[in-house]
Design a protein around this nucleic acid. Sequence first.
DNA 1: CACCATGTTCCTTG
DNA 2: CCAAGGAACATGGT
Length: 279
Amino acid sequence: MPELPEVEQFARHLAPRVAGQQIRFAEIRCLRTIRPLTPESFRDALRGSAITGVRRRAKYLLFDLAPSCSGHAQCLLGHLGMTGRIFVQPLQEPLPRHTVAALDLGATRLVFEDARKFGRLLTDASALNGLGPEPLSPDFSTEVLTAALRGSRRAIKACLLDSGVVAGIGNIYASESLFRARIHPQRAGGHLTPDECRRLRTAIRGVLSEAIRRAEAQSLETPANRETLFYHGNAPGSPATSRFCVYDRANAPCPNCRTPIRRLVQAARSTYFCPRCQW
DNA sequence: CACCATGTTCCTTG
DNA sequence: CCAAGGAACATGGT
């Protein structure tokens, strides 16, 4: 899946390609992908709508829609799940094998490809209710993070994956942020010291913004398209070396101290950390 | 065949 | 009420 930096890259890639385009028709190949569930009601919410822009909130892509008729949706939300990609291609090009939906924009099509089918297209923005602050926005201050963690005995790793605490941190960047902040993933969220909260906020913003910058730089070298829009950070054909410090690097040497990185399981998800640098 | 997987939601259990 | 753990979703990669 795309984590937050990859979703941001999708939004930046798509915005100039779909802004001003009108949705002519929605082809639905996988019913479970859409909400509302029937193609008829889904199309009703989108009928005649023009896309005015693309934004990101947490890991959602937000396609802003111009008013068309009564009952139209104000926004189309896309969530890529674990394996989703959304991209634009010429109308005459054949749809990829795992296409779950395609929006006809006239000369082009907005294609949603999703092998694992965990992704969703929503015409109702209520999924955004209850999300915590965007980690890269000024709202995400040390005070806000500290307040969200106050009193919690949950492991800090679990807190970071809770979208109500801070929006859009996934399994990869939770491990990477805790490594950078030198905090052990099993520490209770409410027991972090003020300095640890400050370090954690700085680390989260750093790892996410650096990942976005890397994606941006890469898209300048290699024009972004279906093939090069990456997830898991690695574009096809790019060196296999991980760009992560700890994620998926069990037994590899810590970049700081060479101690072997350890893997543990929390809430059924893998966590990677350095037992010497993080405590 | 076995096991793992970048996300989210829901359910059960304590 | 809270938290933890697990299952579920569906498919592909190793």
